[in-house]
């Protein structure tokens, strides 16, 4: 519980940081799927990646792997942000007691 009371830890700056993070992740989401997998596919297909043409690989596997990394990265980063701002749930209601319910 680090209830920092710095002046800049406001609702506004929390939300703005979140939005920036979301925008960054969505930019990557867009680039790997629509960019590499669709718009630039022909250019990337000139490049070999093991037995794949690179554009084809992004469309069928690479984008999915990137999506996965993005979600876990966002979850990790947001949990840290929540703690920094003291808006995480641990010092709120003890809802997580239920978590052991498998």
């Amino acid at each position: 519980m680090n209830n920092k009371t710095k002046a800049d830890l406001t609702a506004k700056s929390y939300w703005r940081t979140n939005l920036r993070l979301v925008a960054m992740c969505l930019a990557i989401w867009f680039v790997v799927s629509y960019g590499f997998g669709i718009l630039l596919v022909e250019q990337l297909n000139q490049i070999r990646f093991f037995g794949f043409k690179l554009g084809f690989w992004f469309a069928q596997q690479g984008s999915i792997f990137t999506f996965l990394i993005l979600i876990f990265f966002y979850a990790w980063r947001m949990n840290r942000l929540d703690r920094e701002y003291g808006v995480d749930e641990n010092d709120d209601e003890k809802m997580h007691d239920a978590e052991t319910g498998s």
């Binding site: 979301v22 992740c25 969505l26 989401w29 799927s33 997998g37 669709i38 596919v41 084809f56 469309a59 069928q60 984008s63 999915i64 999506f67 993005l70 979600i71 966002y74 979850a75 947001m78």
Partner: peptide, 29 residues
């Protein structure tokens, strides 16, 4: 679908997984 569409089948692969990024970042929490 992918067997017969080849690269064209990628719309389903990306489309049916990329939605989870939107869910995780924009809606679920």
């Amino acid at each position: 679908l992918i067997a017969f569409l080849g690269y064209g089948g990628s719309v389903y692969l990306m489309g049916w997984t990329g939605g989870y990024v939107l869910l995780a970042l924009l809606l679920a929490p």
